[in-house]
């Protein structure tokens, strides 16, 4: 199962989405500023605390990010290769390894947001952060992407099954890509046009009633953390 929002009562769930986004960005900024063994040690400890606060087991988070983990490690392994015996130089790979570990920490911390924030809250946060019509379009668009991803995945899976049943898997690769994409596009455009009609019929407006976002006392913790991380960055 992919990592997604799960309802819960953890501190991470009770935080305002804006403070969670703030913590992630401050964490990333601090990690880029302190890519040293000592800096990364501090950030590792902090990352562990943040995962624990969201009640997200490390092993599960790493498994969900396995693709990212491979991509992060590969350049380090290649950079360490040298024409020598032994063929791997730790000195060459040291800086890239620190840089890559920093990326892994940032990605891990961002999984806590994914786990603890419903898309509706993110939508409200986007509308708060980006004013005017652009924010309205982007927030609605994100909600639509979330809503339609499973539907379009099911469309593509159905097309692949139908192809396999007709021995379509024997066709040349370009033909197969074309068939799947054409089928997927045709259905996506059909769905988009019906959706647009339905939105207009329901008075899709630039100025809808916004859900209330409010900071609470737990958000103070997040503000303090953002302050500490940003201060540490400039020190």
């Amino acid at each position: 199962m992919t990592l997604a929002y799960e309802p819960g009562g953890t501190i991470a769930h009770r935080l305002d989405p804006r403070s969670k986004l703030g913590v992630q960005i401050a964490f990333a900024v601090a990690a880029f500023a302190h890519t040293t063994p000592r800096g990364l040690l501090v950030l590792t400890a902090l990352g562990g605390v943040l995962l624990a606060v969201a009640r997200l087991p490390l092993r599960r988070a790493l498994w969900e990010l396995r693709f990212a983990v491979v991509l992060v490690s590969l350049p380090v392994l290649i950079e360490g290769l040298v024409w020598d015996t032994p063929p791997f130089s730790i000195a060459e790979a040291r800086e890239p390894a620190l840089a890559s570990y920093r990326v892994l920490l940032i990605v891990l911390v961002s999984t806590t947001y994914v786990r603890s924030t419903p898309i509706r809250d993110s939508e409200a946060a986007i509308r708060w952060a980006i004013p005017g019509k652009a924010g309205r379009l982007l927030a609605t668009g994100v909600a639509l992407v979330f809503r339609f991803l499973p539907v379009l995945r099911a469309d593509l899976a159905a097309i692949r099954q139908a192809m396999a049943a007709r021995l379509g898997t024997e066709r040349p690769l370009i033909d197969r890509m074309e068939l799947i994409a054409v089928g997927g596009l045709q259905r996506a455009f059909g769905r988009a046009d019906r959706l647009a009609l339905a939105m207009n019929a329901r008075c899709f407006a630039w100025n809808p009633t916004l859900p209330d976002l409010g900071f609470s006392r737990v958000d103070l913790l997040a503000f303090c953390l953002i302050g500490v991380l940003l201060t540490w960055t400039v020190l």
Partner: peptide
């Protein structure tokens, strides 16, 4: 934006703002 706020649409079904700072 959708991937950054948690819709699993990045490579390998991953998501999160961290991916936008990652190797990809």
């Amino acid at each position: 934006l959708a991937g950054a706020v948690g819709v699993p649409i990045f490579a390998g079904g991953s998501a999160g703002i961290g991916i936008l700072f990652g190797s990809t």
